[in-house]
Amino acid sequence: MIFTGLLCGALLGFVMQRGRFCLTGGFRDMFLSKDYRMFYALLIAIAIQSIGVFALIQMGLLQFKAGTFSWLGTIVGSFVFGIGIVLAGGCATGTWYRAGEGLIGSWIALFAYMLMSAVMKSGVLVPINDAFKQYALPTNSIPATFGLSVWPFIILLAAITLYLAVRHLRKPKVPIPSLPRKRSGLSHLLFEKRWHPFATAVLVGLIALLAWPLSEATGRMSGLGITTPSANILQYIVTGNSEKYVNWGVFLVLGILLGSFFAAKASREFRFRAPDAKTAVSSFSGGILMGFGASLAGGCSIGNGLVMTAMMTWQGWVSLLFIILGTWTASYFVYVRPRVQAKKLQSASMTTA
């Protein structure tokens, strides 16, 4: 039963690789070019998962407890995580699937992310993690806070998402140059044709929904999650304790790697690409910040930004907000400020000349 995690992860890795479902790039583009397509796509995936999961809960097929809201850890950790994903060149899931494409920089970021996550969860930084979690509110569920059913919130989310998606689709299309068609039929659709972000989001939402019953069937009462399973891999390698650390989530993240690898090979996009020294240092630093932030926040852009948002929790939506703010902050210092300084230097040199 635990191997269903491998299947679910492989599906997710395949879809994210082929659909280029990169939340880091999406959040960054919101700031740099006012392009909200990927954010709207994320809302689609959240809405689909939310409708499906709460329908299953209402039918008594799933269980979910929102727990408490560790507000300080969520805010600080999510902001740090947002900075980290810009430096690493991808979020937690994005790093896994890009590693499957052969990017050595993503392997560096992935190792640093796993290492810091393990240190935060079972190493010398556990006291810091625990200290932040002391600042918590008793209710994490947004509907429970207001004493309401979850369905008005789901309907509101679905309505807003539908409005934003339709409005975007009605905008005039900018022609995108494409490579000459070399395949036909299903092979062309799967491995050659450019996937629309919204179509990819529908598939991601359905896979996120599928993860809940598959995971709960093994006793893991949760949906998609990346940070803890990533840490578990390193913890298992060090301790050899398979009973404690090898679970459905571990197979999920390994499946993402395998699914992405298959998609990249089949679409002829796989190749080993080594980063320069500066990029390697940035990838490692970003991975460290990702591991620290995600552990502090109780989840990454998938665990909090996709799953806990769908479960209508404060943790999910507050985390998503601060991940985006962290991404924007890092994007300013990494992309905008160097350009401004370069223009000033160029202007000064021209004036001197």
Score class of each variant (00 low, 15 high):
M1N: 15
F3M: 15
G9W: 03
F14E: 03
Q17G: 07
M30W: 00
L32F: 00
K34Q: 12
M38L: 15
A41V: 07
L42R: 01
Q49M: 11
V53W: 06
M59P: 03
K65M: 12
F69L: 08
W71K: 02
G73C: 09
I75H: 14
G89A: 12
G89F: 05
W96I: 06
W96K: 02
R98H: 04
A99H: 01
E101S: 14
G105Y: 00
W107M: 10
A112F: 02
S117T: 08
V119H: 07
V119E: 12
M120R: 06
K121A: 15
S122M: 14
G123Q: 06
V124D: 07
N129C: 06
P143T: 00
A144S: 10
A159R: 01
A159G: 01
H168Q: 15
L179Q: 12
L179S: 13
K182M: 12
R183L: 14
L186P: 06
L186N: 13
S187Q: 11
V202H: 00
L203P: 00
V204Y: 01
V204K: 01
W212C: 01
W212E: 08
P213R: 09
L214K: 05
T218C: 11
T218H: 09
T218M: 11
T228K: 07
S230Q: 09
N232S: 10
I233V: 14
L234W: 01
L234K: 04
L234N: 00
V238I: 12
G240D: 00
K244T: 12
V250S: 07
F251V: 14
F251S: 14
V253D: 07
P275R: 05
A280L: 01
V281F: 10
G286Y: 03
I288F: 08
S301A: 11
I302H: 05
A310Q: 06
A310D: 03
I323M: 14
I323N: 05
L325E: 02
A330W: 09
V336H: 07
K343Q: 12
